[in-house]
């Protein structure tokens, strides 16, 4: 028996919106720890790791550890039946090949029961080593999204350079080039507007903008984004989900000439 209840149902809608353009199908891992997922995009360039801890749910019951294979696109279609202020309950029984979503309006005057077919998905978990990063940038997620969107209209790649001067996002395309530098700004009264740069070593890495732009679909989940960089390693772009967990995206860099 697996059952979880999330009063803030819009959170699940936003989580699925944040991964649906990157991942087609995925196994959701259910355990007493929570509801989690690790999945790569079809070209194995990016990986997304989602964690929603059991403590963050109003009700969470998971009698045994198991995985539910779901099409993310189909899940997004099912979640379209939920209003933003609905309470969402997800239920699955042992040995069945369906999952049930129940959407309740806050005043309990409308209840939707949606059943979705599960899938058999063959997927391996990847071991992500705990790493010390050369540089960690924390900045407003809306700012990061806007920078990625602006640079996307000029070029296909973004080079992220962290130095004493700050963090620079640069691109080059047929029509020209652009670079945007953000300096550390921790003096703001609003912590969500701060830009904080922790640098052990200067770092410069190039990434495909089409993936980074997809990651910014998670912007509504968190006011801040954390970008962790090390030379010749995948970047980690993390959006924390308050009191629940996180969505982390890993993207392999472009290498060599």
């Amino acid at each position: 028996m697996f059952e979880l209840r999330l009063v803030q149902g819009s959170l699940l809608k936003r989580v699925i919106d944040a991964i649906k353009d990157l991942v087609n199908d995925a196994n959701f891992d259910c355990s007493s720890t929570g509801f989690s997922l690790q999945a790569m995009d079809s070209s194995h360039v990016a990986l997304v790791a989602l964690l929603l801890r059991s403590e963050g749910f109003e009700h969470f019951r998971c009698d045994r550890t198991f995985s539910m294979g779901m099409s993310i696109a189909n899940m997004a279609k099912m979640l379209k039946c939920a209003s933003n202020d609905d309470i969402i309950t997800i239920k699955a029984d042992d040995g069945t090949d369906t999952v049930t979503f129940m959407f309740e309006s806050p005043s309990q005057d409308k209840i939707s029961d949606i059943e979705m077919k599960l899938m058999d998905i063959d997927s391996d978990h990847l071991g992500i080593p705990d790493a010390e990063y050369d540089a960690i940038v924390r900045m407003p997620s809306s700012e990061f999204s806007s920078i990625c969107s602006s640079l996307s209209s000029i070029g296909d790649t973004v080079t992220i350079t962290v130095s004493k001067q700050g963090v620079t996002f640069s691109t080059k395309g047929d029509i020209g080039s652009g670079n945007i530098t953000c300096r550390q700004n921790s003096s703001t009264e609003k912590p969500e507007e701060a830009t904080i740069i922790e640098m052990k070593e200067p770092v410069c890495l190039t990434f495909a903008l089409k993936y980074i732009t997809t990651f910014t679909k998670a912007t509504s989940l968190s006011s801040q984004v954390t970008i962790s960089l090390s030379s010749d390693m995948p970047v980690v772009v993390e959006y924390k989900i308050a009191e629940m967990g996180h969505v982390r995206y890993y993207l392999a860099p472009k290498i060599g000439e």
């Binding site: 360039v45 978990h125 990847l126 495909a208 995948p234 392999a252 290498i255 060599g256």
Partner: peptide, 14 residues
């Protein structure tokens, strides 16, 4: 042009 890396060359299957 630089080549796109693959995530599987950094993180191994468990």
């Amino acid at each position: 042009d630089p080549k796109q890396g693959n995530i599987l060359s950094f993180f191994k299957r468990k």
